[in-house]
Simulated scan of single mutants.
Amino acid sequence: MKLAYVSSQKQGETDRLLTELADDLQAGGLELRGIVKEQGYSAVYENGCDMYVRVLPDGPSIKITQDLGEGSNACRLDPASIVEAVARVENSSFDDIDLFILNKFGPEEIAGRGFCTVLAKAVEHDVPVLVGAGVAGREAFQKFAGGMAESLPDDATVLRNWCQKPR
C-alpha cells in the first residue's frame, strides 16, 4: 500500500502542485484517476472559496461550490457537485492505472463521505494514492489511512519522484 499526503503553508500551493504534477505525469504517459483543482479559474470571491475541479484523466470540470452571495462566510461546498465528481471518478476503470490523486481531503472526507469510498477502491486495486491535506485534513487523513500515509514536502521534484517510484 503506497499512500501519501502533501500540505503547504502557502495558500493555494498544494492545489497548484497537484494540478501541475497531474499534468506532467499524464504528459509522461502515466494513467491517473481522481480530481485536481482547475487552475485556470479565477475565484469570484475574495476568500477564494469558489472553485472547479477537473476529473482525471480528461475531465469534465465540475464547479463544486455554491454561489451564496457576496459577504457570505458560510461554507460554499456544494454536496451535490461533490457527489457528481465522486460518481464520475468511481465509475471509471481502476484497472491499469498508475496513481490516484485527490486535491484535498476536505470536510466531506473528514465526515466519512466524499471520496472516502473511492480512496478505498484505489487502495483495494493497489493503486498509489496522493492526497492534498490542509491543517484539518492531515490528522483525519492519517486516521483514515490507519497511520500508514507518508507525509511529503510541498516540493514538485520530491512529489514527482514519489509518484514514479515502483510500488
Rank of each mutant, 00 (worst) to 15 (best):
E90Y: 15
S72D: 15
P107A: 13
R113L: 14
A87M: 09
D78C: 11
K121L: 12
I82Q: 01
G69R: 00
Q66G: 01
I64K: 06
A80M: 01
A120L: 11
R88S: 00
A74M: 12
R76Y: 03
S81C: 08
I82N: 03
I64F: 10
L102F: 12
C75H: 06
E108Y: 13
A85F: 14
I82S: 01
K104L: 06
T117D: 15
T117I: 01
F115N: 02
I97Q: 04
Q66D: 11
A85I: 09
S93G: 10
S92W: 00
A80K: 01
D98Y: 12
A111D: 13
F100K: 03
N91P: 03
K121S: 05
N91K: 12
G112T: 01
P107D: 11
F115Y: 08
V83E: 10
I82C: 04
I110K: 05
F100E: 06
F115M: 10
L102I: 14
V89N: 05
G112A: 02
G71M: 07
E84W: 06
A74K: 15
G114K: 05
A111L: 11
L68M: 11
E84S: 04
L68A: 12
R76P: 10
C116Q: 02
G112E: 01
G112D: 01
E109W: 09
D96M: 07
V89M: 06
A120Y: 11
A111Y: 08
I110R: 13
V83P: 01
N91H: 14
F105M: 00
D67K: 09
E108S: 15
R113F: 15
D98K: 10
G106Y: 13
F115D: 06
G69Y: 02
R113Y: 08
I64D: 05
G71Q: 08
G69W: 07
S81T: 04
L102C: 12
V89E: 06
I110T: 04
G114I: 02
E109N: 00
G114F: 10
L99V: 00
P107H: 04
A85D: 06
R113A: 12
G71I: 04
E109I: 03
F105T: 00
G114R: 05
E84R: 15
S81W: 07
L77Q: 13
K121Y: 14
D95N: 14
S72M: 12
L99H: 00
V118M: 03
T65W: 12
V86D: 08
F105V: 04
N91W: 09
V89S: 07
G114Q: 00
S72K: 14
F115E: 07
C75Y: 08
I101D: 06
E84F: 06
K121G: 13
E108I: 02
K121V: 07
A87W: 08
E70Y: 10
G69N: 05
L68E: 08
I101H: 04
A85K: 10
S93D: 03
V118N: 05
F105R: 03
A85R: 10
C116L: 02
V86M: 07
I82R: 04
G69P: 01
I64C: 11
S72V: 11
E70H: 13
